[in-house]
Amino acid sequence: MTFRYALFVIVIISASGCSNIAVLNPKGSEAQSELNLLYLSLALMSIVLLVVFTLFTRFLMKYRELPGQENDFPTQVNGNKKLEITWVVIPIAILTILAVPTFATTYQLDNKTEIVREPLEINVTAQQYKWKFHYPEHDITLENEVKLPVDRPVVFTLHSKDVIHSFWLPQLGGKKDVLPNQVNKLTLTPLETGVYDGKCAELCGANHALMTFDTTVIEQEAFNQWTRVADIQED
């Protein structure tokens, strides 16, 4: 039982730093729907954990060999049909509850690119250890940083110049691989202003760890202002 005690301590310690946990602190609608699934699956799985650990502890306490029982021959049973059916049916039920929203959300997230209206288009080019962001609408290019307006869907068109990278903005949404032989699209919708960390999540060489970028989400007005200024500067 020392086991679980240790585990408990760790959970407490890590819970104290909860505001740091990016995935649990979503600032975009995609990250939010992903988080909802995380909570749903965690809740369902907690039921499983609870049942298993309860039985586990109970059986271990109750059926341990006591002094004097060394020569016992406990009764031997082959199994129990009803019980065995129970633990086939209930997991299937739990998985169904999880599967339906999972599949719905997957379709929704994967097909968002086609549905969203007037998205901000950004072409992302990854190459060994840097990110380039190009705004075709305004013809602006940024390196290792990207500025986004709040509340407007952004479609990232991802392409790599060399090896496989993976584009990850934990607080705005999950990853999408950046492939050299195929263009992938990822839609993210920031809901709050702020600065968020972006990173490469696929091992891409020596400096994989340093291939990060800053994401600044600003008000729509400020964003329009910025594009105008930046556009003029570039010319």
């Binding site: 992903e34 988080l35 699934l37 699956s41 799985m45 997957t106 934990p170 990853k175 696929e202």
Partner: peptide, 15 residues
Amino acid sequence: VMLGTVPADYQYHDS
């Protein structure tokens, strides 16, 4: 099982 829920896996993957 949590990793099997695709959208959440977009977050967990390679982390």
